[in-house]
């Protein structure tokens, strides 16, 4: 696994993106928007049994209008997809990197050395979040940026556990006894598949 800005001797432990449910609403809106012209066409031709004159100006203008509409719907959905896909959190053996894409030309990268991690909290709230197992992980730091937040990510309990395990300041015995400070999700059982 590699990510932009990775150091030569750095090993990536986890690459985390937002949960797929973030995309669902946009996908549904895209399908509805893209399907409306087709639905109208089917209603006119099949239900109302109106025969369209394919050589008329009206039909041609309708085709051009629908074509432009579909192109822009597709473009907006692709831009949203890019924004979703390029947002990611990278946990390596030495640091946590948060890459946030804001639009097409704006990108914010935050970095947190693992040695600066003071506290790790997970938060899973709501019926849907509990069923789909996604939530937030908040890391309190000793650096200038007091909080580092992983938002809307899958299996936040596993992410928190991994961050704690990678803590360089803790001895192996201390690592076994440390749990996330605040955890609203049940501890995963052994053998739980990793993301």
């Amino acid at each position: 696994m590699q990510f932009p800005g990775q150091k030569p001797d750095e090993k990536v432990t986890m690459l985390v993106r937002k949960h797929w449910s973030v995309l669902v609403r946009q996908v549904i809106m895209f399908i509805i928007a893209a399907g409306v012209p087709l639905a109208i066409y089917l209603v006119i031709t099949k239900v109302m049994n109106i025969t369209l004159d394919h050589s008329s100006l009206g039909f041609v203008l309708a085709v051009l209008g629908v074509s432009a509409f579909e192109l822009y719907v597709l473009l907006f959905f692709f831009i949203f997809w890019i924004d979703y896909y390029l947002d990611l959190w990278v946990i390596t053996d030495s640091r946590i990197v948060a890459i946030e894409q804001e639009g097409l030309f704006s990108r914010r990268v935050s970095e947190l050395p693992l040695s600066h991690v003071q506290d790790v909290k997970t938060d899973v709230s709501g019926f849907v979040a509990t069923m789909l197992r996604y939530g937030n992980v908040t890391i309190e730091t000793a650096g200038e940026q007091s909080k580092f937040v992983f938002e809307h990510i899958p299996r936040p309990d596993l992410i928190a556990q991994k961050i704690i395990e990678l803590q360089p300041n803790l001895s192996p015995i201390q690592q076994q006894s440390v749990a996330p400070a605040k955890q609203n999700t049940p501890t995963p059982k052994s053998g739980t598949p990793v993301i």
Partner: peptide
């Protein structure tokens, strides 16, 4: 008019493809 709209769309498409190529590795 359609060509103008399509041209604007193509500009947006090029920008988004550039963004993918630049940042998606």
């Amino acid at each position: 008019a359609y060509a103008v709209l399509a041209g604007i769309f193509l500009i947006g498409m090029m920008m988004s493809l550039w963004s993918v190529l630049r940042f998606a590795s």
